[in-house]
């Protein structure tokens, strides 16, 4: 276009304030770096402050704290094993239900659904993620439990003669139990597992899929042969993220799990989880009881951070591997 500028020295744009501007630049750099560091600072502080606060209750009897099965705050007996057990049981139930369903939804969205219906399904899953956990707890405790209790009793009767199964699904008189909590957790984990699985499936090279079709594969054979082997690592990561979410979920579980101290194989028994017991007993706790509850939180924090860290690493590595292979 028009080049009216003279070929000589560049125009003088700097009108003073050079030093000030440079200082502002440095200051701004420092400011944003500080903001970035807040994440690390907060995570570090969470670990340190809560551990220090919980220490008296843990040090009171460390072996009891991790392996004891009795929780009698009045007598300063703090055994957290039943809660750890409940957390594991409920989240395993949640994973058994949520992982296949989420992978199915992700496959439906990426491979089966038409472009137009895809949007609606994504919206359904997103909406599921926006429902506050306390609302799931409310619906679970008031609506779901009266419905499922007779179903549980019927099922316990059906499998009563089957050895093994009758230990897992034994007689019950309440719907407030591990199984209900696990089901609600499953619903709450579906959105996150689905969205990560979708990201993972998106990294499968189009060439592989078309190649499978070109060889005459049906859609299911294409999914089995081209998509799933490629995405295995990423799906493991996605499931672990869901697991982390399930283990840390508090309020919904607190409302439906019943709140008892059991370590048993019967999934239809009431129990408790680490997160739920904190919410249930927080209001009436004081002194060492509060410290013990914070101690449960510290253990839960350590477990979930570890799981999340591993999961993120697995997902990232899987993605890098795939993108590296077909840039």
């Amino acid at each position: 276009m028009t080049t009216t500028a003279s070929p000589e020295s560049p125009p003088q744009v700097d009108l003073g304030g050079e030093a000030r501007s440079r200082r502002t630049d440095k200051g701004f750099t420092g400011l944003v770096a500080l903001a970035g560091l807040t994440v690390l600072v907060v995570l570090g502080l969470i670990l340190v402050t809560t551990s220090v606060q919980a220490w008296p209750a843990i040090a009171h009897d460390p072996v009891e704290f991790l392996t004891g099965t009795d929780w009698v705050p009045g007598d300063e007996i703090f055994g957290t094993l039943p809660f750890l057990y409940g957390t594991l049981v409920t989240s395993v139930i949640a994973m058994v239900v949520a992982v296949p369903v989420s992978i199915g939804i992700a496959l439906f969205i990426t491979e089966v659904a038409h472009r137009r219906s895809r949007k609606y399904i994504v919206t359904i899953v997103d909406l599921l993620a926006t429902v506050p956990s306390v609302v799931f707890g409310l619906v679970g405790s008031i609506v779901l439990i009266p419905w499922v209790t007779p179903i549980y009793q019927w099922w316990a009767g059906v499998v009563a003669p089957v050895p093994g199964l009758n230990a897992i699904f034994d007689e019950t008189n309440t719907g407030r139990n591990y199984f209900t909590a696990g089901l609600i957790l499953a619903v709450m984990c579906i959105p996150i597992i689905t969205s990560i699985s979708r990201e993972v499936f998106a990294t499968v090279p189009e060439i592989d899929k078309q190649g499978a079709y070109a060889l005459g594969a049906t859609r299911w054979e294409m999914i089995k042969g081209a998509i799933l082997p490629h995405s295995f690592g990423g799906l493991v990561g996605a499931s672990m993220l869901g697991l982390g979410r399930a283990m840390g979920e508090t309020i919904a579980v607190a409302l439906v799990i019943g709140g008892s101290l059991t370590v048993g194989t019967n999934l239809f028994e009431p129990g408790n989880t680490m997160a739920a017991v904190i919410a249930q007993q927080w209001g009436e706790s004081s002194g060492m009881h509060t410290e013990a509850l914070i101690g449960i939180g510290v253990v839960l924090f350590a477990i979930t951070v570890l799981i999340n860290f591993l999961a993120r690493t697995v997902v990232r590595r899987a993605e890098i591997k795939m993108k590296g292979a077909h840039s």
């Binding site: 994440v39 907060v42 995570l43 502080l45 969470i46 402050t49 809560t50 993220l241 982390g244 979410r245 283990m247 840390g248 979920e249 508090t250 997160a275 904190i278 919410a279 509850l293 914070i294 939180g297 839960l300 924090f301 979930t304 951070v305 799981i307 999340n308 860290f309 999961a311 993120r312």
Partner: peptide, 15 residues
């Protein structure tokens, strides 16, 4: 930051 999104919300309360 990704890990922090997975920290149970009750933990933020305890902190």
């Amino acid at each position: 930051a990704d890990v922090m999104t997975g920290v149970p919300s009750i933990m933020m309360g305890l902190f």
